[in-house]
């Protein structure tokens, strides 16, 4: 192989057309998936977006402290119970005032999947024209690593510990993105940090599609502190999640699902779990349950993505 000194510069750099609005030293843990994501979004979508969000790992940085701020974006801090309702208010105000902008409701899985799910679902039904981004670190990390609706089966958290009478979460995770896609909103998609080109495309598409209404992005953003893996592995954990179909990448326009990445010969889910401490106690039986869950969700996605072509409707009555 000829050793060329210079390769091609990653095309992802071309997507980053705007400045990073964050100050350089902000208080996220080393290797934080959320930090990579939150700096990526305005670099791709522009610095003139208006963000709103809730108490979470993102809040200390997005809200600011005392009378100073960590970034130059517009941010509206609100409560977990009403995140999407607040975003609705913002976007309606801008529309009435004739200001064209992009409202991004940026929340963790605790708000999106549990506490603020009701009003998010309402905003989706009313088709409010803003972008909801859920960064999914599979639990309430900021308050001390409690389980959430997206915490997977078997994962050890402080409320589902490995202790006497408990062996991690004994419930399966919910598929939030699929729920939202089934609301037939103009755009729903999943993305992760190992596939930044794919993420950038989906962010730009959401910015475009929000003129038709509610857009939902579910971004898998691992947490080294809460999950117990080496911070250097954050992107690798995302990659493994995609390669094992633990977190498949797809998008749905008006509920029509299309896979944006199909994995040939997926690795078993053990490959994904291997570097992560929250899965360390699981035995073969538990792993089989998780694998079954992953396979089931993939089948569901696969089935839905061919639905229209294959589905034979019963003949109508005369």
């Amino acid at each position: 192989m000829s050793e060329k000194k210079k390769g091609k510069l990653s095309p992802v750099i071309d997507y980053k057309k705007h400045e990073d609005p964050f100050s350089k030293g902000v208080a996220f843990c080393p290797g934080c998936g959320l930090e990579l994501l939150i700096r990526f979004i305005p670099q791709v979508m522009g610095n003139d977006i208006v963000m709103t969000g809730t108490p979470s790992c993102s809040a200390p940085v997005l809200l600011g402290q005392n009378n100073q701020s960590w970034h130059s974006l517009s941010y509206f801090g609100t409560l977990m119970t009403g995140a999407a309702a607040n975003a609705t208010g913002l976007v309606r105000y801008y529309n009435r005032a004739g200001i064209d902008n992009t409202v991004v409701c940026f929340n963790g899985d605790g708000t999106a999947a549990d506490i603020g799910f009701g009003n998010m679902s309402g905003a989706a039904e009313r088709n409010e024209p803003f972008i909801y981004i859920c960064y999914d670190n599979e639990g309430y990390m900021n308050t001390g690593i409690q389980k959430s609706g997206t915490t997977p089966y078997g994962a050890s958290t402080t409320t589902t510990p490995v202790a006497k009478g408990s062996r991690g979460k004994n419930l399966r995770r919910m598929n939030l993105a699929l729920k939202m896609a089934m609301s037939k909103i103009p755009y729903a998609a999943t993305a992760t940090l190992s596939d930044l080109g794919d993420l950038a495309k989906k962010l730009l598409k959401a910015k475009e599609m929000k003129k038709n209404g509610f857009c939902f992005l579910h971004v898998f953003a691992p947490c080294p502190t809460g999950w117990g893996y080496d911070p250097a592995m954050t992107v690798e954990v995302c990659r493994r999640a995609v390669k094992t179909n633990y977190f498949p990448l797809w998008e749905a326009e008006n509920g029509k699902i299309r896979m944006t990445k199909t994995v040939n010969k997926p690795k078993p889910v053990e490959h994904y779990m291997e570097p992560i401490k929250k899965f360390k106690h699981l035995d073969d039986n538990d792993r089989a349950i998780l694998q079954e869950d992953v396979d089931y969700e993939l089948c569901m996605l696969g089935g839905l993505s061919i639905l229209e072509k294959e589905c034979v409707l019963p003949e109508a009555a005369d």
Binding site: S23, G25, L63, Q68, S72, S74, F76
Partner: peptide
Amino acid sequence: MSKNTYFKHEGPWSDANDPLMCSDTGDWR
């Protein structure tokens, strides 16, 4: 830098016209 045009102040108590806060995160390494 593209300044935000919607709010003069980023929040009721956080003024984005001030210099941004910045920690010496290099110290953590």
